[in-house]
């Protein structure tokens, strides 16, 4: 099953490679990983999308917790959270298709962020389903290139991301 894990880490050099090295060294998979500073500049937040059965996910959380620079690990799966991803899509826009591209962008409430005589670059934010849907619609019109950010996620409501203490304490 697919899991979205939010990891609070110390904002120090080398932490990203400790985390990615853990995943590669233990054969865990990473579908996407994003990282940036939090409101506290000494900490960074990683959002990792991964896949595995319950036992693997338990190991992933525990192994992450074991890294000295990891402050908190929070597997959001099964909890109520909001997640978003952004994609920049460069799509061919010839005379015949320019209007069609714009219509689709409009329906998805996207933005055109760059224009050239033969292409549009558009920006779309949403959950995964939305991004997949627009990509599918634009494919027949010829996507020249696309870049995705990977997901970021945050719990719904008042809870912050730190509410799960080292959850593995005494299991």
């Amino acid at each position: 099953m697919r899991h979205v894990i939010s990891v609070l880490v110390e904002n120090e050099p080398g932490v990203l490679s400790r985390v990615s090295g853990l995943f590669s060294g233990r054969g865990f998979n990473i579908e996407s990983l994003t990282v940036a500073e939090t409101i506290d500049p000494t900490a960074s937040r990683m959002t990792i999308v991964t896949r595995g059965d319950d036992q693997i996910l338990e190991q992933i959380s525990k192994q992450l917790n074991k890294l000295i620079n990891v402050i908190k690990v929070n597997d959001l799966t099964g909890k109520s959270f909001v997640n978003r991803e952004m994609v920049l899509i460069k799509v061919a826009a010839e005379d015949a298709t320019r209007a069609e591209v714009l219509r689709i962008v409009d329906i998805f409430r996207g933005k055109v962020v760059d224009v050239s005589p033969k292409s549009y670059t558009i920006e779309i934010t949403g959950d995964e389903g939305k991004l997949e849907a627009i990509i599918d619609l634009l494919k027949p019109l010829r996507i020249i290139d696309l870049v995705r950010t990977g997901q970021v996620a945050i719990p719904r409501g008042k809870k912050d991301l730190q509410y799960v203490k080292n959850h593995d304490k005494n299991i």
Binding site: Q55, K66, N170
Partner: peptide
């Protein structure tokens, strides 16, 4: 904690 449930599922884990 990573040693627990890594290779063998157990009935009573104690960290």
């Amino acid at each position: 904690p990573t040693s627990i449930s890594k290779n063998v599922q157990v009935d009573i884990p104690i960290v």
